[in-house]
Nucleic acid binder design. Structure first.
Lengths: 252, 252
DNA sequence: GACATTTGTTCATATATCGCACATTCTCGG
DNA sequence: CCGAGAATGTGCGATATATGAACAAATGTC
């Protein structure tokens, strides 16, 4: 790609949108300039543009994103076939096993939920399509990392901030790589309260009809009712079954 | 705002992202140019920029958005307090009445779901945070339109493509305005299979602590099990109760 | 209340982008 | 296999944008 085929004004604007997050819903011009590394004048122009287009509100001091911004992500969820194909299978599975079932793909070091059928909530955080979790300590993340070449997986782990969410979280890259090898060999991953105490999950890879892993499916359950050691016995077959049924449906 | 405070390259790029939707997940340069009205060269530069940044894939012919694009909308959902505050209430309500419960806000002529607790699926389409429905024929839309000044509501209706989803859909602006008056007077809206045959829903406004309507809450149910005429008797009190409990929690 | 610091705004200019027109490459139907 | 039509790629002048410094306003500190 040539230098002139890159619209840096657009790239800067996207950076500004991403500056909004978790703890930072209202940002001043300087806040944005600082967190994006853009010049204050440039950040201001991007923010005023967002506001002019209705993607942000401006009270003269702080900018905040408006629901219109959801159009951007929605373009993906509604346009991509995978979420639509997977959803009814998740619904059925979730009802059958009385636990939440989800599908996700990898984006960098994170797992992104693209579809979900939830039962009574067990996690403290509320997962929905678009939600993200660090790949290294999520069952679907382990499966997706295990599906890639070892050096790429290792490189992603090195880019990750490997923190301990619970005393059981694996954070050592060496140990994680060993675990990935095990996951690759056995064809599924179980997470036993590594992300949140009281929560277990199991995930399997979802292959398309050419055999490429394109997503992961999982079931999450409260550790109190289903200990980690039982996850596979209970849920591996249903998950594998769905992955098998979906496979021929996933052409591109 | 001055002319020079507007980054048109950014605005053009956002337009390109929105060009992707429903039926159009893979778009060529010309497709995008046509549907956005941008020059081909400009559309191409925006698409290549998206691809360079990892927001889109390019196979040399077609562009398709990647899950990374979900970061943009997620910035809103995770940064805005309302969805987080409302979610646990919806979870409880949904479980209590064994139906799906949702919260939404208005974006132009559409209702945007910002939180949802779903039971067994009854609708043909799968609603989730970020999903959109036309306001004029959705229960939450009626409530939100009823909460605004009449002339603004009418102006929004005039901008809307008022089509009949079912034989029962109201599409006449005059009739709709009458219905909005009724909704305003009674404090809730019931939709009886106007959006989809077999689906009824009831919605109430959600006010913040200053009395401004900032969102709507609803319950949807299969018409077979709950006829439209019974929606209010069964679900109005629980909905009103939640709106009352939430009110003091909604400061800004 | 005055000083220091941060934040927002404006401006001139160097630089990058836009849109057009033209060149090239695809794509199919014959 | 050819050729017409469509889609894509490219060079260039006109135009719009980014930059960084200077200024103004607000905020915080002593």
């Amino acid at each position: 790609m040539r230098e002139t085929d890159f619209v840096s004004g657009f790239a800067r604007g996207l950076k500004v949108i991403e500056a909004f997050g978790e703890t930072t819903r209202r940002l001043s011009i300087s806040d944005v300039a600082k967190s994006t590394g853009l010049d204050r004048a440039t950040a201001r122009r991007c923010l005023l543009t967002l506001s002019e287009l209705g993607y942000a509100d401006y009270d003269g001091k702080f900018f905040a994103l408006t629901p219109k911004i959801l159009r951007l992500g929605h373009a993906y969820l509604s346009a991509t076939p995978l979420p639509h194909i997977v959803q009814p299978f998740l619904d059925r599975l979730s009802e059958e096993v009385h636990q939440s079932a989800s599908a996700s793909v990898l984006d960098g070091t994170e797992v992104v939920y693209i579809a979900r059928a939830s039962q009574k909530r067990v996690m403290s955080i509320n997962l929905m399509p678009g939600s993200r979790l660090p790949a290294y300590c999520a069952s679907m993340g382990r499966v997706l990392l295990a599906a890639m070449p070892e050096d790429e997986a290792l490189s992603l782990l090195r880019q990750t901030n490997l923190k301990s969410f619970t005393p059981r979280t694996l954070t050592d890259p060496g140990q994680l790589m060993e675990e990935l090898a095990r996951v690759r060999a056995q064809g599924y991953a179980v997470i036993d309260q590594e992300l949140e105490l009281g929560l277990c999950s199991i995930a399997v890879p979802l292959e398309n009809d050419r055999g490429r892993v394109i997503a992961a499916l999982n079931i999450g359950a409260p550790a109190a009712s289903v200990p980690g050691s039982e996850m596979a016995a209970r849920y591996l077959d249903p998950l594998k079954g769905i992955a098998r049924m979906l496979k021929p449906l996933l052409r591109p």
